[in-house]
Amino acid sequence: MNTSSSPSPQPFDHHLNGADTITTQSDNAATTAGTDSGQLLFTPAQAATTLQVRESWLRRRAAERRVPCTFLGKHLRFSRADMEAIIADARRPSAASRIRTSTSDPLRR
């Protein structure tokens, strides 16, 4: 009988991530959405964490169809392209790059 202790077995759901290393399902649960570039779809919680917004804000915008998203049946998911589009749509020019069109401003002399 072998009395040496061996590490507990890992879950059988193994796959390759973007870095060609084997990870387990439990490892992926601990991985943040922003660092796993091989992930196809993100949950609302993962997408909200990546975008640094509240999950409720993101869910509400998705329900109103104001942000790009994917529904798999009743499950809401966000792709990396969806999140990039959300960022691009929210981008505003800086105050220094705004061009004033009115020259008749009485306060500006």
Rank of each mutant, 00 (worst) to 15 (best):
M1V: 08
S5A: 04
S6N: 08
S6E: 14
S8F: 12
S8C: 11
S8W: 06
P9L: 12
P9W: 05
P9G: 13
P11L: 06
F12T: 13
D13T: 06
D13G: 02
D13W: 06
H14R: 10
H14P: 04
H15W: 14
H15F: 14
N17K: 03
G18K: 14
A19M: 10
A19D: 13
I22M: 10
T23Y: 10
T24S: 09
T24C: 13
T24N: 06
S26H: 13
S26V: 14
S26G: 09
A30S: 15
A30Y: 06
A30W: 06
T31Q: 10
T31A: 15
T32N: 15
A33K: 03
A33F: 00
D36C: 07
S37T: 13
S37N: 13
S37K: 13
G38Y: 00
L40Y: 05
L40S: 11
F42G: 07
F42C: 06
A45H: 03
A45N: 06
Q46V: 01
A48I: 01
T49A: 10
T49V: 06
L51F: 02
V53Q: 04
V53K: 03
E55Y: 03
E55S: 05
S56P: 05
S56M: 05
W57Q: 11
R59Q: 14
R59D: 04
R60M: 10
R61K: 14
A62M: 01
A62C: 00
A62V: 00
R65H: 15
R66K: 15
V67G: 05
T70H: 10
T70E: 15
L72D: 10
K74E: 08
K74I: 02
K74C: 13
K74W: 11
H75L: 10
H75Y: 09
L76Q: 01
L76P: 02
L76E: 02
R77C: 12
S79N: 01
S79H: 02
R80P: 00
R80S: 04
E84Y: 04
I86M: 09
I87K: 14
I87L: 12
I87P: 09
A88I: 02
D89H: 10
S94V: 04
A96H: 09
S97D: 12
R98L: 14
I99T: 14
I99N: 07
I99L: 13
R100M: 05
T101W: 08
T101M: 09
S102P: 04
S102V: 08
S102R: 07
T103S: 15
S104V: 06
S104I: 03
D105C: 05
P106Y: 01
L107V: 00
R109A: 11
